[in-house]
Simulated scan of single mutants.
Amino acid sequence: MRLDLAALLGTALPIIQAPMAGVQGSALAIAVSQAGGLGSLPCAMLAPEAIEREVAAIRAATDRPFNLNFFCHVPPEPDAAHEARWRERLAPYYAEFGIDPAGIGAGAGRQPFSAALCDLVEPLRPPVMSFHFGLPAPQLLARVKGWGARVLASATTVEEGLWLQAQGADAVIAQGLEAGGHRGHFMSDDLSRQSGLFALLPQLVAALEVPVIAAGGIADAAGVAAAMALGAAGVQVGTAYLLSPEATTSALHRAALQSEAARHTALTRLFTGRPARGIVNRVMRELGPMSPDAPAFPLATAAIAPLRAKAEAAGRGDFTPLWSGQNAAGCRPVPAGELTRTLAEGLGVR
């Protein structure tokens, strides 16, 4: 299975760098691909010209395979009453920082994969495409597979994994509850249906015929070896790369990852409107990490963004999404290529 995944992706190693929007660009993807893994570029927050620019940078630096990642959420209808309720909850913070809420615009900030994005990406011919929150519409997925791209997608339950396989995913990423960043669930919002990686992984391996990639809490060679022992065909690692020099992780975020605060993470919908795991900070403690007042994904972002900017300017991460998995202890400030080769020791490769 390990060789099957590497052959499927065209890589030397069945190690995938998780796409992490907001904390990386092409440099991290290049470093991982050059080391034999699959570097990934998160595209959901990039403008079309930025996607083209970043792909050009990857191709100029390496001839190894890489992955472009997109979201597949259904944009919600704006709800003025819900937005007003959210801004009312944030009003004391606006007053604290001297922010006029009337000057805060609205906006999604994250776009799902669409026909227009497919038109943009198709000439670029990325060898691998990965999707979060399900898969694109069948006609778009057919186009992606039509140019030869391998398709990966995240599952948080066995039911999601079976659906992804039936729709044509070439491999399924088993996203355990430990994982940092956004949950990839798309069939149910009931988080009680989701489980930790080492409970989910063997169930998916038993249920699926396609390779299963382990994700969540894996930060070193021992974690890789444990995932492979449970039947994983490979691993996807995110948080461990956040301190790499090739990542664009902010100084505030880097400091938090190396502090005792990183021992306490929680799922929160305050920053985007969708559950995502991050280090617990002031706004999560005071409003409750899963407050229903935050609008649906991704509409929560606009109202909290000015607070984030003001607090960060003062050197504080009180309103910053400090994305992190539950195993930040594996974060080390080493080059991404070195980390990739260290992870490969869990495969018996040196």
Rank of each mutant, 00 (worst) to 15 (best):
L5E: 04
L5K: 08
A7T: 07
L8E: 02
T11F: 05
L13D: 01
I15T: 11
A18C: 14
P19N: 12
I30T: 14
V32F: 03
S33R: 12
A35S: 14
A35M: 10
G37A: 09
G37M: 02
L41R: 02
A44I: 10
L46F: 02
E49S: 15
A50D: 14
A50M: 14
E52N: 10
E54A: 13
A56H: 12
A61S: 13
D63Y: 03
F66L: 01
N67I: 01
N69D: 05
F70G: 07
C72V: 05
H73W: 06
V74D: 04
A80K: 10
E83V: 13
E83K: 11
E88V: 14
R89W: 14
P92T: 15
Y93F: 15
Y94H: 15
E96W: 13
I99D: 14
I99R: 15
A102T: 14
G103P: 07
A106I: 13
A106P: 01
G109Q: 11
R110T: 14
F113Q: 03
S114I: 00
A115S: 10
A116E: 14
D119H: 10
M129G: 00
M129I: 10
S130D: 00
F131E: 07
P136K: 01
P138H: 03
Q139L: 07
A142Q: 07
A142Y: 03
G146E: 03
W147A: 00
W147E: 00
W147M: 01
G148K: 09
L152T: 02
L152H: 04
T156N: 11
E159L: 08
E160T: 05
L162P: 09
G168H: 02
G168S: 05
V172G: 13
V172R: 02
I173F: 05
G176W: 01
E178V: 01
H182I: 08
R183L: 03
R183H: 12
F186T: 14
M187V: 12
S188G: 11
D190Q: 13
S192M: 07
Q194I: 08
S195N: 12
L200A: 11
P202N: 06
P202F: 09
L208Y: 12
V210S: 10
P211W: 07
I213S: 02
I218E: 06
A222V: 05
A227P: 04
L230E: 07
G231P: 04
A232Q: 04
A233E: 06
G234V: 11
V237G: 08
T239I: 06
A240D: 02
L242M: 14
L243T: 10
S244H: 07
E246M: 11
A247C: 08
A247M: 05
T248V: 04
R254S: 13
L257K: 00
Q258K: 11
L267Y: 02
L267I: 00
L270V: 01
P275V: 03
A276Y: 00
R277I: 00
G278S: 13
V280H: 02
V283N: 10
R285T: 01
M290K: 06
L299M: 13
L299R: 15
A302S: 12
P306L: 11
R308H: 12
R308F: 11
D318H: 09
F319T: 00
S324A: 14
S324D: 01
N327P: 05
C331T: 06
R332N: 04
R332P: 03
V334C: 05
L339F: 03
G346F: 04
G348C: 03
R350S: 09
